[in-house]
Amino acid sequence: MVLEAVLLNVKDGYESDFEIAFLKASIIISSMNGYLSHELHRCIEVKGKYLLLVNWKTLEDHTIGFRASTEYQEWKKLLHHFYDPFPIVEHFEKVELKQ
């Protein structure tokens, strides 16, 4: 499993519009091959800052399957105009600690 983590900075005054658009976009991402789950968190200390966490089966499910899809074009139309600056997407894998 791969965890996609993205800090999203939404333009001031657009937070409500972003959350409504994200609800629509959630339908898109949740229909993709390799998608497992996602969560959107609103920052308590900083207005307009969000954390998006998406679990994928593989890195390629996100970087190739989703990003190269026609569905991603709709995702972009719904969400990308809200961000300033544009977010950096990072991927993580769980560290299995053995004692």
Score class of each variant (00 low, 15 high):
M1T: 11
M1L: 13
V2T: 05
V2Q: 01
L3K: 11
L3V: 10
A5C: 05
A5Q: 05
V6Y: 07
V6P: 02
V6G: 02
V6A: 10
L7M: 09
L7K: 08
L7D: 08
L8S: 06
V10R: 03
D12V: 01
D12K: 04
Y14S: 12
Y14N: 10
E15D: 15
E15Y: 10
E15A: 14
E15V: 13
S16R: 08
S16N: 09
S16L: 09
D17C: 07
D17G: 12
D17K: 13
D17W: 04
F18E: 04
I20M: 08
A21K: 14
K24G: 08
K24Q: 14
K24R: 14
A25Y: 07
A25N: 04
S26Y: 08
S26R: 08
I28T: 03
S30F: 11
S30H: 13
S31V: 02
N33Q: 07
G34S: 03
Y35V: 06
L36V: 12
L36P: 04
L36C: 11
L36Y: 05
S37K: 14
S37D: 14
H38R: 04
H41F: 15
R42F: 05
C43Y: 10
C43R: 12
I44D: 11
I44F: 12
I44Y: 14
E45N: 12
K47A: 14
G48Y: 08
K49W: 08
Y50S: 02
Y50C: 05
L53V: 09
V54W: 01
V54G: 02
V54S: 03
W56P: 00
W56F: 01
W56C: 00
W56S: 00
W56I: 00
K57T: 03
T58V: 01
T58K: 07
L59G: 01
L59E: 03
E60Y: 01
D61Q: 00
T63W: 00
T63A: 03
I64H: 05
G65H: 06
R67F: 04
R67H: 07
T70S: 06
E71A: 15
E71I: 04
Q73R: 14
Q73G: 12
E74C: 02
K76V: 15
K76W: 11
K77Q: 13
K77M: 13
L78Q: 09
L79S: 12
H80C: 14
H81M: 10
H81S: 14
H81F: 15
F82D: 11
F82Q: 06
F82W: 07
Y83H: 10
P85K: 13
F86N: 09
F86L: 13
F86E: 13
P87D: 04
P87Y: 10
I88P: 00
E90S: 09
E90V: 04
H91E: 04
H91G: 02
H91P: 05
E93M: 00
E93R: 00
V95S: 11
V95L: 15
E96G: 08
E96F: 04
E96M: 07
K98Y: 13
Q99S: 15
Q99H: 15
Q99K: 15
Q99N: 15
